[in-house]
Design a protein around this nucleic acid. Sequence first.
DNA 1: TACTAAAATGAATGGTTATTCATTATTTAG
DNA 2: CTAAATAATGAATAACCATTCATTTTAGTA
Lengths: 197, 197
Amino acid sequence: MKKADKHKKILAAAIHVFGEKGFYNARISDIAKEAKVADGTIYLYFNNKHDILLTLFEEEIGKLIVQIKGAIAEEKDPRKMLKIFAHNHMKLVIEKKELAEVLQMELRQSSAPIKQYRNTSFADYINIISDIIHMGQEIKVFRSNLMPGVIKRAFFGALDEMSRLWILAPDNTYSMTECAEQITNIFLHGIVPAESH
Amino acid sequence: MKKADKHKKILAAAIHVFGEKGFYNARISDIAKEAKVADGTIYLYFNNKHDILLTLFEEEIGKLIVQIKGAIAEEKDPRKMLKIFAHNHMKLVIEKKELAEVLQMELRQSSAPIKQYRNTSFADYINIISDIIHMGQEIKVFRSNLMPGVIKRAFFGALDEMSRLWILAPDNTYSMTECAEQITNIFLHGIVPAESH
DNA sequence: TACTAAAATGAATGGTTATTCATTATTTAG
DNA sequence: CTAAATAATGAATAACCATTCATTTTAGTA
């Protein structure tokens, strides 16, 4: 097995174990067992336990950004782009449930190295939203008195909190597709009926 | 000092220490030092480290619920109630920064005892939102094709994600008052201008 | 004040686990 | 095929820290 493959294998195992038990309750030996390598082998590929988590953030969020940017690229209408973003986000949560769990749990930790990733990969991810908002404001399909920096966090936060429900109880009455639809609808048109605006 | 006072003192210290270092990096001796008691004393008031966290959830979220319900009680218009909720939530984050940090970090952990609190105190808190939505749908000031169970999570998630920015960097350009205002506005009226609905 | 019960103390214990490194296995090259 | 070099192993190490409990201090009472 090539070096890069083992690197991947260990990261995949880490996603599984961190997702299941959380970073602090996960043992290196759990990850080693899951990856079918010896405990010591992990230290040939990563400096320490934290390094595994940070590498995971960097590499996996990077992939998500590429994925979601690709999905949006063909669309020109910012309103539809927002909808595509929402659906894609939910799709990723479902397809990569364990990764989603790790990100939801560990990206909230406010230790110094985590803060760093809030400022790089993760920021890039939610800046996709503010780019869409900007675009919409330029061509006047979005109100320009709303701050993109607020909207991006609000929209992401809404999707994220909703997806948490599915992660905690996947057999839920709400389908994530329906949720993505409703959340986009709320953000675009509000919960107040059109005639009363 | 009365028993109840020492209980409070230890909990206050725990909020401080958990908020600063996170639950897993916090040592019992840190909490003891902060509360100015001996390590062993903590075990006269709490069963173990986890028990401190759970007690903290239960008691503190309980207070928040009372506080925010009081703030809303006088208002009849669900649109305004939503606004009051948002402002109050942000106010609580600012006034109880350390508690907010603990809740944001630890309520995301998906270990069994945490899941329990997602289902009790915390659920009560965000159900305040869905109650408002229901009310608004009854009197037709809110669209009834949107699910309260989705809106409550979306609204809370939006506020929560926005407040995280302030917690990580309190000297921020966005005022939390302005954010509460904008988020409520987005949820009520959408980001699309009124004429294009 | 003296005695007893309750509360508080903090050093010692014991379990846990990230990390290391001497040893073994595998790969590469001549 | 043989010998170096490279990679992998997993038992041993070395903290670390939650929890306990024998001892001391404080509070209550008569």
